[in-house]
Computed example of a mutant assay.
Amino acid sequence: MTLAKRKIAESKELLGSITFRVDFAVSLSEYGGDPSDYITVYEGNIIGMADDDSEQKIGTLILYMVEAGRTMNEGVSLFDVMDCLDGDSCDCFENLFDPDSEQLKPEVEKLISEDRAAQWDIMLIERLELVPEYRGRGLGKSVALRAIQKFGENCGVITCVPVPLQFSGLGRNDRKPRGMTLAQRRVREFWEDVGFDRVPNSDYFIWPQ
């Protein structure tokens, strides 16, 4: 049993009668020659489904899927691809990849299993958010693991940066507001419980298996 499947089984014990699905919207541009063509953004609404068949939106899941293998085959700069979308994808490149060789940094490679290292694509979990009344019940963990299981098979790198959403606009050199340290610790503990490992000297976490 893979790590994702084992942890999904564990999280179901907490979910009880809660079931969910994620409805994704995917944008495709007409022109296929731009660096952004190598990144697909999945913007998803997490839908909670009750026993009486009623449904409601209970959260948001956003994934960036980067076709790093295709950039290599077609001679396209991975930096240009990850720089074209937004600051988050560019920051991901700067934290995980050597800017000259565009290869993974050694400290990142050490966290990835040999089986996963044979894959090239990148999955960045950009956002996972639940409304307050659905937190603390294993639902967020189950959503994250299901996304990894569904989309991460061909990804050498599955990553996230655990920053509390209420503080996501702050820069590294900005003064930390009151309560940020505690909130950040809780978010990091959540992703560690999902199964991620922290990259040394970085805010990024890596799925190791």
Rank of each mutant, 00 (worst) to 15 (best):
D80T: 10
E189C: 09
Y31Q: 04
N201A: 12
A68W: 09
E192G: 11
R186G: 14
Y38P: 08
G44C: 06
T2L: 02
Y38S: 02
E30I: 13
L139P: 15
N154G: 07
E94I: 13
L165K: 07
D121W: 03
G59M: 03
T60D: 11
W120E: 12
D98F: 08
V143C: 04
V22E: 02
A68T: 10
I47D: 07
D174Q: 10
A144I: 06
T71K: 03
F205T: 13
E102K: 13
D193K: 05
E30D: 11
D91A: 15
G69C: 02
E114R: 08
R21T: 15
L111D: 02
A25H: 14
E192K: 14
L128Y: 08
R198E: 15
E94V: 11
V199Y: 03
R198D: 02
V187H: 01
P177L: 06
I158S: 02
R70M: 10
K176N: 11
D197E: 12
L28A: 08
G169F: 07
C92Y: 02
E43Q: 13
Y38K: 10
D174V: 11
L124A: 01
D197G: 00
D83R: 09
G48F: 00
E55W: 03
G169K: 11
S17R: 10
F196A: 07
G33Q: 01
K141H: 12
W120P: 00
D197M: 05
P162C: 01
G16Y: 10
Q166S: 12
D53P: 05
A118E: 13
F205H: 03
P208Y: 06
K150G: 00
I122G: 00
F167E: 12
W191R: 01
A4I: 13
I46A: 05
I148D: 09
M1D: 10
R172C: 09
G69T: 12
S202N: 05
V76G: 07
A25D: 15
L104V: 11
C160M: 09
M65I: 15
R178V: 14
A4W: 00
K5I: 15
G16F: 06
L165E: 13
F24W: 08
A118I: 12
K105G: 02
K12N: 11
S168H: 15
V131N: 09
E189D: 15
L104G: 00
D203G: 06
A68I: 12
P35N: 06
G87C: 06
P99E: 01
